[in-house]
């Protein structure tokens, strides 16, 4: 069952178990710190603020024109995400959060930035994220978080009508691997 429900006013209601809810609430501080540092991992910077031009001169012109716009917008999305989480409800079964319709896009963007950040930290370059793990190896905290955020982002997209299974080419698994023949 999808833990994300679309309401009549296009807001989304998310129901999460306590543990997952608490993990979610710890995220804004993590990425806010990261964006405020300014001197974070160059690979993370390159991915969150990618180049638009191959030509260095044109890229410099573009960056000058853009200024801090992208960074400001990303920080705004962290704040909006944080503000939503401040109004969560703890119920017997877990945590309940409502995302206003106008913030759904911000949430999706924030979750994606967080996933990109984790993927860089984990050095993920293949569609199959667990490819480097030995069969009995336990997932790191970061990889478990990446899976949790991916699942949540997918649940939100599902609730909006963007169901991942519809887009996966025939003969492929959701993680990009080729399906095993049965």
């Amino acid at each position: 069952m999808n833990p994300v429900e679309r309401q009549d006013d296009d807001s989304l209601k998310i129901y999460l178990p306590h543990a997952e809810g608490l993990v979610l609430c710890s995220l804004p501080q993590r990425i806010e710190d990261l964006l405020s540092q300014g001197d974070f991992n160059q690979r993370v910077a390159d991915r969150l603020f990618p180049v638009a031009y191959e030509d260095a001169g044109k890229e410099a012109e573009y960056r000058k024109l853009l200024g801090d716009d992208l960074k400001k917008r990303k920080l705004e999305s962290v704040k909006a995400f944080k503000a939503t989480l401040e109004n969560w409800d703890i119920t017997q079964s877990g945590v309940e959060v409502t995302i206003a319709a106008e913030l759904v896009e911000t949430w999706l963007g924030f979750l994606n930035d967080m996933r990109l950040y984790l993927a860089i930290e984990l050095d993920i370059t293949e569609n199959d994220w667990s490819a480097g793990l030995e069969p009995d190896e336990e997932m790191s905290e970061e990889l478990a978080l990446l899976h949790l955020l991916t699942w949540l982002q997918q649940c939100i997209l599902d609730a909006l009508g963007f169901v991942q299974e519809r887009y996966i080419p025939e003969g492929e698994e959701p993680d990009g691997r080729e399906a095993e023949e049965t």
Binding site: Q154, L157, F162
Partner: peptide, 9 residues
């Protein structure tokens, strides 16, 4: 490898 297909659409 990170962006979901549904998200890209």
């Amino acid at each position: 490898p990170i962006n979901l297909m549904a998200y890209v659409v």
